[in-house]
Design a protein around this nucleic acid. Sequence first.
DNA 1: TCGGGCTAGTAAACCAGTTTACTAATGTCG
DNA 2: CGACATTAGTAAACTGGTTTACTAGCCCGA
Lengths: 364, 364
Amino acid sequence: MESMPRQRRQKEQTATRRATINDVAQLAGVSKGAASRALSPDGGRIGRETIARVRAAAEELGYVPNIRARSLSAARAYAIGWVMRRDPDVLTEDPFFPSFLAGVEAAISVRNYTLVLSIVTDELEEPTYRRLASEGRVDGFLLSDVRTRESRFALLADLQVPAVALGAPGPSCPIPAVGIDDRKGAELATEHLLASGRQRIAHVTGAPGYIHTHNRQLGWRAALRKAGKSYCAEGIADFTPEGGAKATRALLDSPEPPDAIFYDNDLMAIAGMAAAMSRGLRVPRDLAVVGFDNIPMAAHVAPPLSSVATDTRDWGKLAALTLLDAIDGRGTQGQVMLQSGLVVRRSSHAVPKHANGQGGVSNQ
Amino acid sequence: MESMPRQRRQKEQTATRRATINDVAQLAGVSKGAASRALSPDGGRIGRETIARVRAAAEELGYVPNIRARSLSAARAYAIGWVMRRDPDVLTEDPFFPSFLAGVEAAISVRNYTLVLSIVTDELEEPTYRRLASEGRVDGFLLSDVRTRESRFALLADLQVPAVALGAPGPSCPIPAVGIDDRKGAELATEHLLASGRQRIAHVTGAPGYIHTHNRQLGWRAALRKAGKSYCAEGIADFTPEGGAKATRALLDSPEPPDAIFYDNDLMAIAGMAAAMSRGLRVPRDLAVVGFDNIPMAAHVAPPLSSVATDTRDWGKLAALTLLDAIDGRGTQGQVMLQSGLVVRRSSHAVPKHANGQGGVSNQ
DNA sequence: TCGGGCTAGTAAACCAGTTTACTAATGTCG
DNA sequence: CGACATTAGTAAACTGGTTTACTAGCCCGA
């Protein structure tokens, strides 16, 4: 009784009550149905003069349609969901986040959609998808961090909700996908290191089991193979600074240490550079480094970090648009790949020929 | 006609349709209203035996209440909103984000609430608040990045939607607030630098106009005053690595350069360290550095960065709980301040006495 | 045995929209 | 000039829940 919603049971109350379509209809002197059609953009079967009168009334009352009522009637949530699974102790700052979200927002807000975001632990991932879908909270999902063995495709088929994968999951993927060309990006980075004269180019991976980790690995390998290199030391890490630092130390401790390392993201690359430098190695002279993501920080560490760059904002925009299309039944089944470019900074500069014997200390 | 939602106009269709409360009531052999009450947690006026029968029926049908219908009837969205204003070109990675969100999610999901997140540009901020509120998309807002001259308080009062401020906006704030003690944190950092023997402790601020920027400035000043220091060089920056680097260079160029800098966040501190080191300064010997936020990266740069740490996950949780209380009318009007601690790493280590004249080069 | 209070349940109203079924008015054509 | 579309509008049904108003049945005491 005491927790009853304050807005109930009041018809003619003094307090400001939000105008409903009934109010608009009454003011315009038409029926509720006519008002509804006059306000809908594709308003069929309604006179031009009536449309004007209704719209004027709506304007005057400051009428904003109640999305809850519309949702119920249209059997739509006018919202999309994004469930991010994040290990609670590895809640690293994700550069992907803000600009990707800004892109999503730009795309969906003009269609009057909103984004429902959940950050969940492993065991809550599936229940969260189920809840959002079966309660009718969202009309579709963005699927980030697609795994190589992806259980969510089956889950979504079961829930009968459209989705768009963020990444390049390959031809077997049953849903549309919008991603960056990880493989190509990794190839670019590796080729650049080769071109700058490096002989032993190692790789520090992101967390295993993810499509993007896998594709970056493929790109690195392909570039090495094309160049006829057999050296292919690799450290398995997890996208975190700590993991990157550890993997770097392990590589440097190996009998044949690398003279260049390509990292699957910038956070690891920055931590890796720090680890190498704290052992007295000079970057880029003794060790060249390239990262991935091109976070704002990359340009402002010492030395500035080369990195593979993508327009994440565009990515978010495109992914969201694709999802809205899928929701509307205009399913583009294909996969879109955004190109990425390499931003070269000092961390991977070539060592000048004449400088080769100059400082002449360390591992040479 | 062709774009008509597929689920309409079908009563007895073979395709799987989600069970409604009518189905449950029918299966249990009771009326719709009885079923509703039997399923509600505080189900009054209903027999124990009936409750059991209805619940069994719901279980059998895999019934999940439709939030859209419930929303309409209860005049609640069962969602909270978070509108982040972000300059599109300064979409820096925000360490605050993921763990804070995880905390929010943990708090609201058990109450069956969801989070609606918007990242908007300046001019879209107010319209977004208006839209989310007047459409009835959300029941309340989290207000981040509270400004010193905050226009959103009036806006929210106008919209008649509860909100919780994330920060410590001071006693004049008309809504409850949950924040970290920025002032205390900054004081801690500054006192630590003083204790490590630094004489000229400068400050690089975050973007001006924000409460937390202001409070950190107050803390820094208070610590200096308490110690009787008159030196108080300050660079105005904006929380971005680039801004931090620029401000650092300006401070170092001044006639009386600092021997320590306290930065308003880690991103700036890391970039600042890099800028200083690229000029040949040694950290911590020539310049001690302390940041704020303690992002995971902080421990993995060279040298490892000292920083003011807060449990952002707890913060998110508490803020969300406070907002839910406000939505339910159980308004705690007060302000909660979470304590933060200092994590000391190498970037601010004291210079050993005997080492003072040892390297004996630079600015001494 | 009758009226009063209590319990458990039903039918219907309600939330605020959209859509359907129907009707009145107008226009067109044979 | 009457049959028939077409158009513009109304009233009512519908979305799927919650809540209210009402009723039937039971126990109890007078």
